[in-house]
């Protein structure tokens, strides 16, 4: 059975949805973070793809494109010891708190 990202030829009845969504700012940020982290040689594109492909298949399938990037960026930065999960948890919780006020 092909890996979850290896989609070519998998059967589907889905028509191609040609509607476009306007990018949220966080999607631009996810895209840009990868660009900057690649330039600084913190991560490379092959690692980014590997991180995406390592997602739990159900999560891969239910995530949007940049949600998958986000998951991989986090996986790689934690794996490389640049950030810890606890740090990300803490800042994310604080941001959520700020925005809810």
């Amino acid at each position: 059975m092909p890996a979850v990202h290896d989609r070519g030829g998998l059967p589907t009845d889905q028509p191609i949805d040609r509607s476009e969504h306007e990018w949220a700012d966080w999607e631009y940020v996810a895209n840009a973070l990868v660009g900057v982290l690649r330039r600084h040689e913190v991560i490379n594109v092959d690692e980014l793809r590997r991180g995406i492909e390592a997602m739990v298949p159900a999560e891969y399938e239910s995530s949007s494109y940049y949600e998958r990037w986000s998951a991989s960026i986090e996986t790689l930065l934690v794996e490389k010891g640049v950030l810890t999960t606890a740090e990300i948890d803490a800042v994310a919780a604080r941001m959520d708190g700020l925005w809810r006020r």
Binding site: S70, E74, M95
Partner: peptide, 16 residues
């Protein structure tokens, strides 16, 4: 409507 992953991207940006 930001998702958990969206918030985490912004948190990662801030930490970096």
């Amino acid at each position: 409507d930001r998702s958990v992953r969206a918030t985490r991207v912004l948190a990662i940006r801030q930490l970096l």
